[in-house]
Design a protein around this nucleic acid. Structure first.
Length: 563
RNA sequence: CGGGGCGUAGCGCAGCCUGGCUAGCGCACCUGCCUUGGGAGCAGGGGGUCGGAGGUUCGAAUCCUCUCGCCCCGACCA
């Protein structure tokens, strides 16, 4: 491909409204353009990258027996109503009506439609297992699109769905996907990890996410360097650093107008880890009191797993329900209210509100002074101990690049996707669903691999294998050599981009580094006089000069080296 | 949805507070000359509903009201 013929609108300056590195570089290097918030156009270079990622996805999906199909993006409402998600999903779903006023939505995901198909076609255990997948556009009216291509309202997703007769089959397909995902992300040159995750509203009880570490990510994971335990902080278990039990004497103390942990802590000259933080929340099943140590925070998701949907109580509600102003709440003496306490409070002696205006109380002990349901409901922090091996946890920011869910029978039961087993009994199909976002792979690759000059693509997903850079297009020798090398490299089935523009050398070098093709072949007049061509590695910036006839061999060597 | 910021040429910005000549600068773009190993130089040139609507005023990019869009933080996130 010739640079002069290809649409590669590079930008010298970054558009002001791009923040994330991948966003800035994709815009500057001419990979994408923004149409509106969360809507992106993929330009020729960007689309080539997605193509190469898709090719890897397809190979690895086919290798575990998945079959590619394609489903509509426009979905009739009835199917989503049958699974209940038409109502449970809020503004995130794009909804519309056809000319006959029939309700439709744009697909945010395809569990419903895949399951509908299974319900029509799968009859017998002999039809199972099946894995169907597609690489298809999804639409979600995101509350806040952000970070360029990382969180958009329209995006392409590789989504696969497994259908099994039993749990063992699901487990096999789940593991097959996990392994395929490892191969995919490795091939795409990403640093990544597999972590336990919250299945959320997908239902089912088991899921993992694949995470690429990057400061641009919006998720956080806790990782144990000791035993390898890793989980999304939404559910990561951890043991907060233990406090010394200083055996506070039980006494009520006057704490006028000291409401927050910080205020009381300062007033009593006692560290926040010696306090119990009591937070009243309103759940669908009434109020509940959540207790964590004073230096910890309640994790809403973790609490949701215990008590379901909830929101913080308002000040007036606290007074009405507990009979005391927020700020002086303690865990003692409440009836008819659920109390959920963080596990770390089982040990130790604490200070808490006295349930009496302007008073706190010292010497509070679990079981002696209050009882509660014990769960890990605090936010895991850097330095907390791993629940499995005790090593210090690390907290890392990550980009979610893929996920795998065990769905069980949630969708098959709702949509009556059933089969007859060996005994002639009708049973719902057991399902799993598995997603990967190709654009996120591309963005994560850029986030993880770039320098001040631009993108550094892994070879596997670069838009081209080699960029040929004839420095002076007015020099007939340069042009002739470039054309010759272009033919030779193309004959090796390499994808070659030749910068044949009438531009000065500096411009070509800058654009080449920006665009990030892993290997640069530079044809300069002076080198050429000595029969030499320069081959430069985008990653290491190492350049070697070789004889013209050795160029192809050297390039092929480079391409075999991992990147 | 709450908080903050920003909309002036393709990109980056100045001008706005304190209204007043033809709305300006850098880069990019076009023509010519020149140049060809890290975003050259000289000369000439094109490009603007100042996001939109309404208002105040003799006069609005500038002041007021409404509105649309984009970005960031938070909430949310199959």
């Amino acid at each position: 491909m010739r640079f002069s013929k290809m649409f590669i609108p590079t930008l010298r300056e970054a558009p002001a409204d791009a923040e994330a590195v991948s966003h800035v570089l994709m815009l500057r290097a001419g990979y994408v353009r923004q149409l509106a918030a969360g809507l992106y156009i993929f330009l020729p270079l960007g689309w080539r990258v997605l193509d190469r990622i898709d090719a890897i996805l397809k190979e690895e999906m086919e290798s575990i027996g998945a079959q590619e199909i394609s489903m509509p993006i426009l979905h009739p409402a009835e199917i989503w109503q049958q699974t209940g998600r038409w109502d449970t999903i809020g503004g995130e779903m794009f909804r519309l009506k056809d000319r006959n006023e029939r309700d439709f939505c744009l697909g945010m995901t395809h569990e419903e439609i895949m399951t509908w198909l299974a319900s029509k076609e799968i009859r017998s255990y002999r039809d199972l297992p099946q894995i169907w997948y597609q690489i298809q556009t999804k639409l979600r009216d995101e509350a806040r699109p952000k970070s360029g291509v990382l969180r958009t309202r329209e995006f392409i997703m590789k989504d696969s769905y497994s259908f099994d007769a039993d749990e063992e089959g699901l487990e096999r397909n789940y593991q097959a996907h996990a392994e395929a995902y490892h191969r995919i992300f490795n091939r795409c040159g990403l640093r990544f990890m597999q972590v336990e995750s919250d299945p959320g509203m997908m239902g089912g009880g088991y899921s993992h996410e694949f995470m690429a570490p990057s400061p641009a990510g919006e998720d956080q994971v806790a990782v144990c360097p000791g035993c390898g335990y890793s989980a999304n902080v939404e559910l990561a278990l951890s043991v907060p650093v233990k406090t010394q039990d200083i055996g506070l004497p039980g006494e009520e103390v006057h704490t006028p107008d000291k409401r927050t942990i910080t205020e009381v802590s300062r007033f009593l000259k006692l560290g926040p880890e010696y306090f119990i933080k009591s937070v009243l929340v309103m759940s669908d099943n009434g109020p509940a009191l959540a207790l964590v140590r004073g230096d910890q925070e309640v994790h809403e998701k973790k609490l949701s797993i215990v008590i379901g949907r909830h929101r913080p109580a308002q000040k007036a509600e606290v007074k009405e329900i507990l009979g005391v102003e927020a700020g002086f709440i303690g865990p003692m003496g409440h009836r008819n209210i659920r109390i959920i306490a963080d596990t770390c409070l089982k040990e130790g002696t604490y200070v808490s509100g006295a349930n009496r205006q302007h008073y706190h109380i010292k010497g509070i002990k679990a079981e002696q002074d209050f009882t509660a349901e014990w769960h890990d409901i605090h936010i895991a922090k850097q330095g907390d101990a791993c629940v499995k091996c005790g090593a210090e946890l690390l907290i890392e920011r990550v980009i979610e690049i893929g996920n795998i869910f065990k769905l069980g029978t949630k969708y098959s039961a709702a949509l009556k996707a059933v089969f007859l087993d060996e005994h002639g009994d009708e049973r719902p199909v057991i399902m799993g669903s598995y997603g990967i976002g190709p654009a996120r792979i591309a963005a994560a690759a850029i986030e993880q691999r770039h320098d001040k000059d631009g993108i550094i693509w892994p070879r596997s997903i670069a838009p081209f294998d080699v960029e040929l850079i004839p420095l002076n297009m007015n020099d007939p020798g340069t042009v002739e050599t470039a054309e010759q090398l272009y033919r030779l490299l193309a004959a090796e089935r390499l994808e070659v981009l030749m910068d044949d523009r009438e531009e000065r050398a500096g411009v070509k070098f800058k654009d080449a580094d920006l665009i990030g093709i892993p290997t640069q072949v530079i044809i300069g007049e002076k080198n050429l006089k000595n029969g030499l061509i320069e081959i430069k590695d985008r990653t290491t910036r190492e350049a070697v000069s070789v004889k013209i006839e050795e160029v192809v061999g050297k390039v092929m060597d480079l391409i075999k080296t991992p990147s």
